[in-house]
């Protein structure tokens, strides 16, 4: 996000899992995103600490930092609307409000174009988004992934209202997903392709071959790339609905941002 705002140079440290963009990979690590190390953060003498809201264990050390007078901002982005407000706030905090505004406008425009395209979709396939397997975890109705599915012209077949839903293989069969999305990343390091899961062989997605691996970093971590995720998924679910105009201007603009 800061990279997109042109402020990646201001980053002085990262968590263990942050490896993108490439230039921050060499920065000091202050611990993991679940257990940041208070001392390691202080050692960097930061002007500002940014954190995505997560588990309680993760927020305790950051609360301690706040008490020590470090400026701390904790964000939550479970939808595109929340993501946009996060980008604007990060822009303000890092003195790059105009760039943030530009970034949000660009993302909104691409989403609007995507919505218009998907409005022409004849059918909205039932999508299953696998967060983790084994010990199957799926994306529920809350959270950004659910909105990505909706924007991409699909229907999340998991009806659980929470962000994540635990469920059994039997339940997957009952849900009859027409598309099976498997995220690959830290949460799901070595998932099997759907074709190698004999117990799921009868679900419609297996019969039609509409099963794909996607990048966890792109789909499950809110950021500028979340729009890329929605566009990519739309292309997978609705190959018949090609984007009408891929204007070079837009593509170039996008490249600038990255």
């Amino acid at each position: 996000m800061l990279e997109g705002l042109g402020r990646a140079d201001a980053i002085v440290a990262r968590t263990d899992a942050d490896r993108l963009p490439a230039r921050i990979a060499k920065l000091p690590v202050i611990g993991t995103h679940m257990r940041p190390n208070e001392e390691a953060v202080l050692a960097q003498r930061p002007d500002l600490v940014l954190q995505m809201a997560g588990r309680k264990e993760a927020s305790l050390p950051v609360e301690a930092l706040r008490k020590r007078g470090v400026r701390v901002a904790v964000f939550r982005a479970e939808s595109f609307a929340e993501l946009f407000s996060v980008i604007r706030r990060v822009g303000t905090l890092t003195g790059s409000a105009p760039q943030a505004e530009d970034m949000v406008r660009g993302m909104e425009a691409r989403l609007a174009a995507l919505d218009a395209r998907m409005a022409r979709a004849k059918a909205r396939p039932r999508v299953f988004y696998e967060v983790r397997s084994p010990n199957l975890l799926a994306a529920g109705q809350a959270g950004l992934v659910a909105e990505i599915i909706r924007r991409a012209g699909g229907v999340n077949c998991v009806e659980d209202a929470a962000k994540f839903a635990h469920l059994s293989e039997e339940e997957v069969i009952r849900l009859e997903p027409e598309a099976y999305i498997i995220q690959r990343g830290p949460m799901n390091p070595a998932p099997l392709p759907l074709g190698k899961r004999p117990r799921l062989r009868t679900i419609p997605a297996a019969a039609s071959g509409r099963a794909w691996f996607v990048d966890e970093q792109k789909y499950a971590r809110p950021g500028p790339q979340s729009v890329d995720a929605a566009e990519e998924l739309a292309g997978l679910l609705h190959p018949e609905l090609k984007p009408q105009e891929i204007t070079p201007a837009k593509g170039a603009k996008h490249k600038d941002r990255k």
């Binding site: 659980d160 039997e170 997957v172």
Partner: peptide, 10 residues
């Protein structure tokens, strides 16, 4: 274990 929780959670 597999039937106590709703919606197939275990």
């Amino acid at each position: 274990a597999r039937s106590v929780l709703p919606r197939g959670a275990e």
